[in-house]
């Protein structure tokens, strides 16, 4: 009754069960440890130094040859300490600066201006001054000027094994998008 096939099947079943059990144990103990290391209250400060609005007609910036779109770029300062998010099962933290602004009734948009991959605890204290936004941001509709966005710093913790966790740092600032240059 013990063919090669059956043996292989038993072994692979056993390995799969073992891997899944290990993954479950690792993620639960990691979550408990993160909970006690005060993740969820991350000190931070954001301030915008400059915002520039330009009209773009390229498809790469959301526009078309005959209908342009307003593109906003920023220069900003950001300081934060993400070191409490790092422990033995943290592979990396992905941190990003988002702006949220309302549209017409029931409409809302959320856009990322800048992000950074933080691979180790040594890199987790950010003190950035006058950084330029990584992305030129445009809206679904042509215009962005005079809309007021709330800027926040959010993060995503990625483990070696287990669930992904999202959070927001304790900082926000308001920004009114300027008129076209």
């Amino acid at each position: 009754m013990f063919s090669l096939f059956q043996r292989a099947q038993t072994v692979s079943n056993y390995v799969l069960t073992l891997v899944m059990t290990m993954a479950a144990i690792i993620s639960v103990s990691w979550l408990i440890q993160l909970h006690f290391s005060e993740h969820g209250s991350i000190p931070a400060h954001i301030s915008v130094n400059k915002a520039v609005n330009t009209m773009k007609y390229s498809r790469n910036f959301g526009g078309r040859p005959n209908s342009g779109k307003e593109n906003v770029r920023l220069a900003f300062d950001v300081t934060t300490d993400l070191s409490s998010l790092f422990n033995w099962n943290t592979k990396q933290v992905f941190v990003y600066l988002v702006g949220e602004y309302p549209g017409k009734k029931d409409e809302v948009s959320k856009v990322v201006f800048w992000d950074k991959i933080i691979p180790t605890k040594e890199d987790s204290i950010l003190e950035l001054t006058d950084v330029r936004s990584k992305y030129s941001v445009w809206d679904y509709y042509p215009n962005l000027h005079n809309k007021t966005a709330t800027l926040k710093l959010e993060y995503n913790i990625q483990p070696h094994v287990g669930p992904l966790i999202w959070g927001t740092a304790d900082a926000f600032t308001q920004l009114q998008f300027p008129e076209i240059l």
Partner: peptide, 10 residues
Amino acid sequence: HRVVREHRVV
């Protein structure tokens, strides 16, 4: 991939 922009529109 990661979501970098969302627009909820009517």
